[in-house]
Amino acid sequence: MTDPIRPALLDVDHLKVSFATDRGRVTAINDVSFRIDDGEFVAIVGESGSGKTVSLLSILGLTDRRTTFVEGTAAFRGRPILGLPDRELRRIRGKQIAFIPQDPLTALTPVHTIGWQIVEQIRTHETVSKEAAKKRAIELLDEVGLPNPAAAFGRYPHQLSGGMRQRAVIAMALSCNPALLVADEPTTALDVTVQAQVLDLLKRLRRDHGSAIILITHDMGVVAEVADRVMVMYAGRVIERGTAREIFAAPEHPYTWGLMASIPPVEGPRPHRLPSIPGTPPTPANIPPGCAFAPRCAHRFAPCAGLPPALSASGHDAFCFLDDNARAAGRAALFAAPETAA
């Protein structure tokens, strides 16, 4: 996986993000490291406040520079991008790294047409005529599956349905052929049948364009559908990392177990009660010391008051003190014999 000669597409090392708030500095992201290679489909999973979105926005320089402090390094194709002057970062943003936001209704400027907004992006990064940019925009809208793309070009965001808007947003993200697509909960605001369409589209685009995709989501089901590799985040840290196959076959962190077990199944036996994680995820302002999950964890023991050993550089690993036997036992208890309806 690690090619010593060619640098990774995106290499993030010891990323730390903190905010200035009324009550002093609050650390939202702590010690997050990962790398992504060309053409990979990586999912970052977490609940609200886990820092999954903030970590990527801070890498892209999209956080508020006056209130957000970003430490650590992030290199895009070997070139450090944290702390790059805005002028230089802008050449990468939108051209080589494109962003797909969560809610396509609020993510498009309401007063400009879809086509205008795509052409704007193309002409920001490339010197092409308006006509050529328009032609490309219509091709893109066609490619993402908008019926009648020429008409859609002249439409305003509010005139399209949610699914169509999300396709338009994806077309815009693709307009400069980016090497990396960052999608922040791209299907959360959509209905399931439309979500299925958009996930299929993302998979097809990865195949056709070879772009790497980072998908931020809270939905383990979506992850299972599309991702090659998975990072689970909790309270600002990566708490489990591995290939999708590894993580779904044998999740190692008690939080990941809980996350997977608490999804009500749509087939098979109906559990009498859903296994759930007690308590609520912490907000960045009140992350507990030591293992942040310990207060909600059924398996906590004395060492959890301290910080678990760092994740290994590669392979499947969890940020947890439990040993392999304890993990296997805990997992078995939760998944093997679900309590069925009485």
């Binding site: 609940e47 859903l274 759930s276």
Partner: peptide, 8 residues
Amino acid sequence: LDVSVQAQ
């Protein structure tokens, strides 16, 4: 609600 809270 978040998934873990939703189950509760």
